[in-house]
């Protein structure tokens, strides 16, 4: 299908993009376009104007200096291949390397991905588990929000009209054990369920754990019950089974399903994949 007719402008700066989208509520920011354009072709989204920010140098680049800073217009392929990301938060590199196919990863951006907030996409789940911070610019200055609070619901974020995501900041998790595992949909490869775990270990004991779930839920979300079940345990079978039960309760109010993979199955799989994520994290 073809999208409805629209205007296209290339923003000259972040402020210009903010200006153009603040003045016109019918305008939408265009990043890599790999979420927005399909939605437009299906007429799920019909903006009158696209403001292209994909070439703004300010929004590009990855740097690691105490924390990891990823420009919003970094592509999935750049993130997946970045030595800094590998070092600070390897499971984010894993997740970005699982998005779509080569074409999508070469063009789609992390900023665009999280602004779109597809519940079955991989990077949001890792960002929530990692405790990432989203930095946002708007006409009256800048603000930041935690990834956990950023993702609100199905395709719904904390982002408002006239705001642009500038960068995503991720803490240095190089000392942690972490993993992201998912069951990909056979046709789309989107996550039927995706689980990210980040474990702070003290010898054989899990000092603290962060767990996030996506795919099975309307948005990427933290699973605090599962975190409690893992924290302080030796991650033995009993602890893993307890965490597998807990994660199913954690997400029970936010489940999502489709004709092939109903909610009940995805809920059950969140437990299975949590266990497998922990095992994968421990190597």
């Amino acid at each position: 299908m073809w999208p409805k007719e629209f205007d296209y402008v290339r923003a000259s700066s972040v402020d210009d993009a903010i200006q153009q989208t603040s003045d016109n509520t019918d305008a939408k920011i265009l990043a890599g376009g790999h979420s927005l354009l399909p939605a437009m072709k299906l007429r799920l989204s019909e903006p009158g104007k696209l403001v292209d920010i994909s070439r703004l140098a300010d929004l590009k680049g990855i740097s690691a200096n105490g924390t990891l800073s990823i420009g919003a217009m970094s592509t999935h392929a750049e993130i997946a291949a970045s030595a800094d990301v590998q070092q600070y938060c390897a499971s984010l590199a894993t997740a970005c390397g699982m998005v779509g196919d080569h074409q999508v990863r070469n063009f789609g951006t992390l900023g665009g991905n999280i602004a779109h907030a597809d519940p079955a996409s991989d990077p949001p789940t890792v960002l929530v588990a990692a405790g990432a911070t989203i930095h946002i610019k708007r006409s009256r200055g800048e603000r930041s929000v935690s990834a956990e609070d950023f993702f609100i619901d199905l395709f719904t974020t904390d982002l408002e009209d006239g705001e642009v995501i500038t960068r995503i900041e991720v803490p240095n998790l190089s000392g942690h054990k972490a993993a992201y595992v998912k069951m990909p949909h056979p046709a789309s490869r989107y996550a039927i369920v995706g689980v990210a775990v980040i474990l702070e270990m003290d010898g054989d004991t899990c000092k603290s754990a962060r767990v996030a779930v996506g795919g099975a839920t309307v948005s990427a979300m933290r699973a605090s019950g599962a975190e409690s079940a893992l924290s302080g345990s030796s991650l033995d079978d009993a602890a893993l089974n307890a965490a597998a039960s807990a994660v199913q309760s954690d997400i029970s109010d936010a489940l999502m399903g489709d004709v092939s993979y109903p909610e009940s199955y995805r809920q059950a799989m969140s437990g299975v994949y949590l266990k497998r994520a922990v095992k994968a994290a421990l190597g």
Binding site: T94, M98, Y180, V181, K182, M183, P184, R276, K279, A280
Partner: peptide, 9 residues
């Protein structure tokens, strides 16, 4: 190994 992301168990 059902999927690349998942080690065979």
């Amino acid at each position: 190994q059902a999927f690349q992301s998942l080690a065979a168990d």
